[in-house]
């Protein structure tokens, strides 16, 4: 009987993607209809779709999107510079590795809420808080990635270059930097996603604009559909940046890699 089912249902990636999306919506609807505990407060996919559309049309989202974008821009920007510098220091010189290792360990382990709240304490309401929080949380992650990349440089290549008397500058540019680039890039993607999330969290706690702020707003009025519509926006944008933009760059720059990299971590 099973051979009557067309193969493409299983093999065509796009169709499977559709099946997946449909499945999610179905599960959601079923949960909405049947789970007694939450029936009163839950929302159906349709309600969320309507709310999202309303939100989109009303153009309210523009102001907050721009605000969030700027928070992330500054926070992520600082994290990139600080993280890369820190990563190089820690990766290349033993002294800095030992001196900073505890800070990195703590930096990665510290719950982001702590950072968000402390930023709120120091910088109060406004735009600095989310930017600072994002910068503080993302930096150790990027530094760790760069550190790992530098540790994994193939020593054989370095001795080869030395044997051929290649100038130091050339070795740095064409061996060291190239070798670390994939890890740096992976770190960059992760740090960006992280910056988005932390900035939103900090916005929730102490900002007057931004996606996080709007989520808080909707929460205050107990509007679940409203909250979800903002989440949908947020997620869509993040996915677009991740796979649309960064993913494309990654594919071009790393064409030499044969493996299929979706860039999970």
């Amino acid at each position: 009987m099973f051979d009557k089912i067309p193969q493409s249902l299983f093999e065509n990636r796009f169709i499977v993607f559709l099946e997946s999306t449909v499945a999610i919506v179905i599960v959601w609807t079923i949960a909405y209809r049947t789970l007694p505990l939450i029936r009163e407060s839950f929302v159906s996919p349709t309600e969320v779709a309507i709310a999202t559309r309303e939100l989109f049309v009303s153009m309210i989202w523009v102001e907050h999107f721009v605000a969030s974008l700027s928070h992330v821009f500054y926070g992520f920007g600082i994290a990139v510079v600080a993280g890369t510098v820190l990563g190089i220091l820690v990766g290349w010189w033993d002294f800095w590795e030992k001196a900073f290792q505890d800070y990195l360990t703590v930096g990665i382990a510290i719950p982001s809420l702590f950072v968000a709240i402390f930023s709120a304490m120091w910088f109060g309401l406004g735009s600095t808080t989310p930017a600072a929080a994002a910068a503080i949380v993302a930096t150790p992650y990027l530094a760790t990635n760069v550190y790992g990349g530098i540790n994994n440089i193939d020593n054989d290549l370095l001795t080869m270059a030395r044997a051929f008397d290649v100038s130091r500058f050339r070795v740095i540019k064409r061996v060291i930097v190239q070798s670390v680039l994939p890890d740096w890039f992976a770190g960059l993607r992760y740090a960006l996603a992280l910056s988005w999330k932390i900035a939103s969290l900090a916005e929730y706690i102490a900002a007057e604009q931004g996606i996080g702020y709007m989520i808080r707003f909707e929460m205050r009025v107990l509007d679940l559909a409203g909250v979800l519509s903002w989440v949908v926006f947020f997620t869509a944008l993040l996915l677009f940046i991740e796979y649309g933009i960064l993913g494309q760059i990654e594919k071009r720059v790393f064409a030499w890699r044969q493996r299929d990299s979706i860039g999970w971590v």
Partner: peptide, 26 residues
């Protein structure tokens, strides 16, 4: 291929969002 979209979306949604949703629901 079937589960990748769900996992991707799961990765992108921040803990804050789930927390807010969970709160409102419960």
């Amino acid at each position: 291929n079937f589960f990748t979209p769900a996992v991707n979306i799961g990765l992108s949604i921040p803990g804050l969002a789930w927390a807010a949703v969970a709160f409102l629901v419960f």
